[in-house]
Amino acid sequence: MAYDLLIKNGHVIDPDQGIDGLFDVAFADGRVAALAPSISDASAGEVRDAAGLYVVPGLIDLHTHVYWGGTLLGVEAERVARASGMTTAVDAGSAGAGNIRGLIDLVAPRSPVRILAFLNLSLVGIFVGDGVHVGEAEDLRFLDIPLCVGAARANAEHVVGVKIRVGASTTGALGAIPLHMAIRAAELAGDLPVMVHVGAGMPPRIEDIVDPLRPGDVLTHYCTPKENSPLTSRGQLRDCMIAAKERGVIMDVGHGSGSFGFDVARVMLESGLSPDVISSDVHMKCIDGPAYDVLATMSKFLVLGMPLAEVIRAATATPAAVCRRSDLGTLRPGAHGDATLLEIRKGAVVFKDSIGGSLQADRRFVPRGTVIAGQWWHDGAAAA
């Protein structure tokens, strides 16, 4: 047989290649082997019919916390993947230089889902959880640039950037100083991107968080409804947000348990600041709602009016580009053999944001199959 697996009759949306139409997709030796309007059933050892479904590159969640067993917030990547069709989880700073090997050597090999990581500038990573409210970056003794650089270089196969959480609850009196340190560490580690979390409270101001960011850096929680909002008191976009978008800062949703508001998201979409990346910020406090996973977050933006192909791009091609992984987020022959089969299921549903807001909807994404490394991995949800 020429191919190990063949997905037939699906509506392929691959923004990386500009493809949006009916195609068959074949996989061999863990890679995408062929993409064509018609591929013979006889050429594959296993054939799956995707008629009526969308076939997209394997979903990438750029902001997760999957250091399961290593941090209080960590969740199991496999659990998230079975519910969403995610094939790559990017852990957003759960681990720092002092404990990144645990994520890479102990957690990642046990997961069928690929795990990459933004390395926290803080040596200890994110250790907050029930009863623990000490910011990991409020003490300079935890912030060691040479250790961060060394760990990023030593684990370059897995580390895609540097993470820093900036806000009253995470950097305290240090304000934005840790952000500047994170940027310097990222430069020294190979000009990696920085992902910065916009804290709910001040100090510092959101301007002090956004203005230092470089093209390709990631502003996560960009739809935060909290005190340090990207909107003015009149509900208009702050100038710093517009300038950041214009210079190429990546706008990331990072839904989480407290960092996403429908009203802010609507203003962003109406103002032309659609998210570059749709991510969940899934962790122990939001895996059962309101964030759930990347697919649930994608559903919210679909219902808010973001075009289907752009929703798919924001969870495939763009996060792959942020990670500098051209072998991910695409169904281009030769790429890693990851794919997600999706249904847009009609029916009444109520979505929640992070502050109790509701969105009445008539459709949502449902995972109907997952391919990992060229093999059928999970059937997804049952047909309606």
Rank of each mutant, 00 (worst) to 15 (best):
I242G: 07
A108W: 09
I126F: 05
N9W: 07
R153T: 08
C240A: 08
A50R: 03
D49Y: 07
P212Y: 04
P333S: 06
A154V: 10
Q236F: 13
D49M: 05
V366G: 13
G167D: 09
S169W: 01
D14A: 03
R79E: 10
E78K: 14
R313L: 03
L62R: 04
I372T: 14
L121A: 11
R165K: 09
N155S: 11
P319D: 03
F351C: 11
A26H: 07
L6M: 08
I183Q: 12
D239F: 01
G329L: 07
L304I: 01
R363A: 15
P290H: 11
Q375D: 13
G167E: 09
A381I: 05
S169C: 05
N120T: 09
V264D: 01
L147G: 00
K352I: 03
V128M: 15
G261S: 06
A381L: 06
D139A: 12
D41F: 13
S279C: 00
D16N: 12
G289P: 12
A243W: 02
A244H: 00
G256L: 03
H65L: 00
V366A: 15
D191A: 13
G74K: 12
C240E: 08
R324F: 07
G131E: 09
D338W: 01
R79A: 06
V12E: 09
V371N: 10
H255R: 03
G135R: 04
S40K: 00
L237N: 05
G85R: 13
V90F: 00
G254I: 03
V124N: 09
A373K: 08
G150W: 05
R48F: 14
G52D: 10
G131F: 00
A36R: 14
A243E: 15
S257V: 13
M251V: 04
A176V: 00
A291G: 02
N228F: 08
D252L: 04
P319I: 10
G235E: 10
G337D: 09
A77W: 05
V159D: 03
E46K: 15
F365H: 09
I177C: 11
P109F: 01
L119I: 03
A81H: 08
I287N: 07
D14S: 07
L331P: 14
G74M: 11
A320N: 02
G161C: 02
D61K: 04
V128N: 15
E207L: 02
L59W: 07
D208L: 11
A51C: 13
Y54V: 13
G258V: 06
R79I: 00
V194A: 03
G272S: 02
S271R: 02
D4N: 11
A173T: 13
A321V: 04
G369E: 10
V196P: 01
R153L: 11
R79Q: 10
A317G: 08
G93P: 12
D14C: 09
Y67V: 04
A154C: 10
V294H: 01
H378P: 08
E227Q: 14
D293I: 02
P203N: 13
R368Q: 14
L331R: 06
L123N: 15
S233Q: 14
P37V: 12
P37I: 12
